[in-house]
């Protein structure tokens, strides 16, 4: 078969190319695959996804198209026992398909780098792993026989997503929340007010600073609508800083396998107007003052809460207490 390309097929190729490009551009923007974005950072991440979807759609059409076309056009005809043309390479073509992908991935890298930096991923205090921060010295032979304690001599460093470069300039202090992951629940402590809760309530439009740790095994704190995730590691603290800009109820999911009931380790994030949030906070403080004595959750700061819960690490399966906590949380019972 002759492989000379005549003008009309040239035009066809050109038009298909343009159509494919336009479709990729459109699909990259309008794929609707992601859930709502509830913060500015999340929208930025979606921007990367759009770009990558565009590139991927284009390459998908190009290569699947080439495969399909070959399968139809270059099929061996019945009775044709000859070989195809002995083309064993084409240097300009090879250079093109090495160089173009290189440029494309570098572009995606640089864009991702930029977004990551804007999110605060390179904040110097929040992007370094200081290693185990709470150290303990073993006295007995049995693991878990002693408690974790913070090493006092160390300066504060955490790992995760911190303040973005421009947030560092802002005078407003972020709202700190301490997050503790235990099998199979999240416990949120608001150090400013002493409120302890199984659900996360946050005011809209304010910087939030989550300090995340775990009491037993690894967990991962995931906010799908905020495109944020960070592992919770026993013995060290990790951080997530973000600013919700959309009132609503979002899910909080544990994304790291943490045991049999990993799947129910979920709760709800309520992003509220500042007034609603204030109201909720007051209510909690009053309620907790009442039952200070007989509740785990009322221990006024998370470190002692985690100490209290440390023995959990040694147990397996479902604790009756844990199950009760889970039943108490609405998302968990909904999915049960």
């Amino acid at each position: 078969m002759r492989k000379t390309v005549n003008t009309s097929s040239r035009i066809t190729i050109l038009l298909t190319g343009i159509a494919a490009t336009l479709f990729s551009l459109w699909y990259g923007q309008n794929n609707g695959l992601l859930p709502v974005a509830a913060s500015e950072d999340a929208s930025q991440v979606d921007g990367i996804f759009s770009l990558m979807m565009t590139v991927a759609t284009g390459l998908f059409l190009l290569i699947q198209g080439a495969l399909l076309f070959s399968a139809i056009k270059f099929r061996r005809r019945k009775g044709d026992e000859t070989d195809g043309p002995p083309i064993a390479g084409n240097v300009p073509l090879e250079i093109a398909w090495t160089a173009i992908p290189t440029v494309m991935v570098l572009l995606i890298s640089v864009y991702s780098f930029d977004v990551y930096n804007t999110m605060g991923g390179l904040d110097r205090e929040a992007s370094q792993d200081p290693g185990p921060q709470k150290v303990s010295y073993r006295s007995g032979q049995h693991p878990g026989s002693e408690l974790l304690a913070f090493d006092p001599g160390q300066k504060y460093l955490a790992l995760g997503v911190g303040a973005s470069p421009q947030q560092k300039e802002e005078p407003e202090e972020p709202l700190p929340v301490e997050v503790n992951g235990i099998q199979y629940a999240w416990i949120f402590t608001y150090p400013d007010t002493g409120v302890v809760s199984g659900e996360l309530h946050l005011p809209v439009g304010r910087q939030i600073d989550l300090k995340i740790t775990a009491g037993d095994v690894l967990h991962a704190f995931w906010l799908p609508e905020f495109r944020l995730k960070q592992d919770a590691v026993p013995g060290r603290e990790t951080q997530l800083r973000f600013e919700p800009n959309r009132v609503g109820e979002y899910s909080v999911v544990c994304a790291e396998l943490c045991g049999a009931y990993h799947g129910v380790m979920k709760t709800t994030l309520h992003v509220q107007t500042p007034e609603e949030y204030e109201h909720w906070s007051q209510e909690q403080q009053i309620a907790q003052a009442d039952k200070l004595e007989n509740s785990v959750a009322a221990t006024p700061n998370s470190r002692s809460a985690s100490e209290f819960l440390a023995p959990y690490a040694e147990r397996m399966g479902v604790e009756s207490q844990t199950l009760e906590q889970l039943k108490a949380s609405p998302t968990a019972s909904a999915s049960n």
Partner: peptide, 14 residues
């Protein structure tokens, strides 16, 4: 390649 992008992987990891 998509999951290699850190900000996106943070969302879809695990």
């Amino acid at each position: 390649v998509m999951v290699a992008s850190v900000p996106f992987d943070i969302h879809v990891h695990d």
